[in-house]
Design a protein around this nucleic acid. Structure first.
Length: 302
DNA sequence: TATCCAAGGTAAGTT
DNA sequence: AACTTACCTTGGATA
């Protein structure tokens, strides 16, 4: 087993593992003790979390376990995962600078202060694509539950430290399944979307990672070619996987926020409203701010 | 215990 | 292009 430690003091802006992985940005991390994800909306806990990935240097999938305790991030894996961890949890972002760049605004300040240390994630593109296709009209806890079900039914089993985990399904595995099988997992009308989009990736017709390099709005348009992906889901993939930190997914929460706090940003169409709220939330890091506001309001803050 | 409702929307059909 | 409507499932609220 490989393992390592990262001092949180060495990170500009601190860190909050629980807030980062349970705030509805990523559905690819799991609590190691098996307790239901999101049963407690608090933050700052010291639980172990795990995810899986496919390292080049190893034939089988690898497990990565992470815990935050005593001012440190401790990790364990099949392989050296230090750099990957920094990448996936955006540990190199200068969070102090990002927070400082946000507009002076009571709501934004309160959201940043309450969850200081939460970082955006950089999920693998395929997992992000599928999880956000599943997110349509669905609660955060159930979106995560669907990903757990997908792992168990279609993910490769992998042993680590005496326990068996399931890798996130490959595009090929989900392409090879059926709408009916996915409906049995509780995906509802999202089942055919998942199967067909996975098929597009498996056959090489398109890959969500190919949006990288395009301008923000072009990238959003590119992603909508996948079945079950509209502008909102596309924005989620851009923000939580592909590093477009200016993306502001216009979900029910941000739409309510716009109504109550920034009514002038409501422009009718998604594209125009998106541009307006992006400016209001600070431009290049608007998505960071949106994620804090989403998490803050969803947990009852006002 | 039964019924109702909304959940981080999208696709397909109309105007 | 803008506007409607149907869509699966289920945990939690309401009666």
């Amino acid at each position: 087993m490989e393992q390592g430690v990262i001092d949180i003091d060495s990170l500009a802006g601190g860190f909050d593992l629980q807030a980062t992985v349970e705030s509805g940005q990523s559905y690819l991390w799991n609590r190691a003790d098996g307790t239901t994800y999101e049963t407690d909306a608090a933050h700052g806990g010291d639980a172990w979390y795990w995810t899986t990935f496919r390292p080049d240097e190893r034939a089988d999938p690898a497990v990565l376990r992470v815990r935050q305790v005593d001012g440190q991030i401790r990790w364990e894996s099949h392989v050296d995962a230090a750099e990957r961890l920094r990448h996936w949890l955006r540990l190199d972002d200068n969070l102090d600078a990002i927070v400082a760049s946000a507009p002076e605004d009571r709501l934004l300040r309160d959201a940043y202060d309450t969850y200081r240390g939460m970082r955006l994630v950089r999920d693998p593109p395929f997992g992000a694509l599928i999880s956000f296709i599943c997110s349509a009209q669905m609660r955060v806890s159930r979106i995560h539950g669907m990903q757990v079900a997908l792992r168990r039914a279609h993910g490769e089993a992998v042993d680590f430290d005496g326990e068996t985990y399931h890798a996130y399904p490959t595009p090929e595995a989900l392409a090879a399944t059926t709408e009916s099988a996915l409906r049995d997992l509780g995906l509802g009308y999202r089942a055919p979307y998942v199967q067909r989009s996975a098929e597009m990736v498996a056959t090489g017709e398109a890959h969500p990672g190919d949006a990288r390099g395009l301008s923000y709005e072009e990238a959003r348009e590119f992603l909508t070619q996948f079945v079950g992906v509209g502008q909102k889901v596309a924005d989620c993939v851009l923000l939580f996987s592909l590093g477009y930190l200016e993306a502001v997914p216009l979900d029910t929460w941000i739409r309510t926020t716009i109504e109550e706090y920034y009514p002038d940003c409501e422009k009718g169409s998604y594209a125009d409203t998106s541009r307006a709220i992006r400016e209001t939330l600070g431009g290049e890091y608007a998505g960071y701010t949106q994620t804090y506001v989403f998490h803050y309001l969803r947990n009852g803050g006002e």
